[in-house]
Each structure stands twice: as C-alpha cells, then as structure tokens.
C-alpha cells in the first residue's frame, strides 16, 4: 500500500490533485488531509496550493503545517505544487510581503508590468496556459517526460531560488524563470501537473515511484 497525503489547508482544488494521483496509481490510499497522524503515516506528501499567499500562509501556520513539513521532508518524498512550491521559499512579495516556510533559500516575486513578447505584443499577467519546461537537471521525477514538454501554468508570481543548484526545470515568459525545484526529498513545480494532461499524469506516476533523496 502506497499512502499519499495531500495536505489540505482549505485553499481549494485539492480533489483534482487527489483524482490525478488516483488515476495513475494502483494499491493507493490517497488522503486529502491536515491531520497530523495521517500525514506522519503517509509514504509520500503532496503540498499543493491555490490562492493568495497571505491567506495560504495564515492557514499553514494556524494548522502547524509549516513545522509538520519541516519534519516530513526529513524522511519521505514531498511534492510541492504552484503556491505550495512558492510557500516553500523564504518570503513572497505577494499581499504586501509574506514570510513563508523557508525550505528553499530564495523569494517569490511578481512578473514585471509591461513585458513584451517576441511578436511585440504586450504579455499578460497571470502567465496562464501551456508553456514549455526545459529540464535543467536530471531527476527521477522527469522519467518518461520529454524535455521541453508543455505544462499548464497559472500564476502571477514565481520563485527566485538563491542557489541555481536547486533548479531542475525552467520556462520563459519572456525571461527565463524557475519552473521546477528539487533538493533532497523535495520536488516542487510552479505548474499544475493535475491540469497538464498526459505529461502531468506521468509526473504524478513518477512521484509514486520516487523514494526520495536523489
């Protein structure tokens, strides 16, 4: 039995994550939960996130999920998604500035205003839609996923890790930004694998097979 805990801190759309995981795995027990015991009993942790950072971090701290995550990453794989990835950084400039969990060194910043694309058109924010992800580091999570595959993004903020060693995937809008981070037992992505059809489902499949600590 592969026990997967999808951490629920009340910020939407976790069932899509759970359904995608259930879709690709056998002999699974997927729990959408904030229960301490369930998280500690899980073999793998998914840390998703949707919404405004101030509210997310408020709930994460209120439920003690920040401390719990620091403990969980010690001995099992953790998969951060979108705002979940951003919450793993030290600080976000969203909502006037919010301190985050700090598992990765670096911050979360907004796409600048007045970005212009190759065709001269004004680029919109949020960065919304299917963009290519270049795999900048080898990682078991990229197994069977073609380099430069398109994943679904929707975000106005992106992470700026201090150490480039943590970066395993990049995209561009129009400047290059970090799309995937990895360190020890943690793999985190800015895009939504549960909304990225075949390649996204493959990423979840890889997570179910990944035992952490590359």
């Amino acid at each position: 039995m592969n026990r997967v805990a999808v951490i629920d801190y009340g910020m939407g759309n976790l069932h899509s994550v759970a359904k995608a995981v259930e879709h690709v795995g056998d002999n699974l027990q997927v729990s959408v939960t904030a229960d301490e015991k369930t998280m500690l009993n899980a073999d793998r942790i998914i840390f998703p996130g949707v919404g405004a950072m101030r509210d997310c971090m408020g709930e994460i701290k209120r439920l003690g999920i920040d401390d719990m995550l620091r403990r969980l990453v010690e001995d099992r794989p953790v998969f951060g998604i979108c705002v979940g990835m951003q919450a793993l950084m030290q600080h976000s400039e969203e909502n006037g500035g919010v301190d985050c969990i700090g598992l990765f060194e670096g911050n979360v910043v907004r796409f600048p205003k007045d970005m212009v694309g190759e065709d001269g058109d004004h680029l919109k924010v949020p960065h919304m839609g299917w963009n290519e992800v270049k795999q900048t580091g080898t990682h078991p999570m990229w197994n069977n996923i073609e380099d430069n595959s398109r994943f679904y993004f929707v975000h106005s903020y992106f992470v700026t890790p201090t150490s480039h060693d943590d970066v395993v995937g990049e995209s561009a809008y129009p400047e290059t930004f970090t799309a995937a981070l990895a360190k020890k037992n943690v793999f985190a992505v800015q895009f939504h694998p549960e909304k990225s059809q075949t390649v996204g489902l493959q990423l979840y499949k890889n997570f179910l097979e990944w035992d952490g600590c590359v």
Binding site: M11, G12, V50, G51, A52, D55, V83, P126, M128
Partner: peptide, 8 residues
Amino acid sequence: ADKFGSQC
C-alpha cells in the same frame, strides 16, 4: 480575488 486569488 482576495479570498481565492485572481488566478481563479
């Protein structure tokens, strides 16, 4: 937007 984020 304040509650759920502009993205949705």
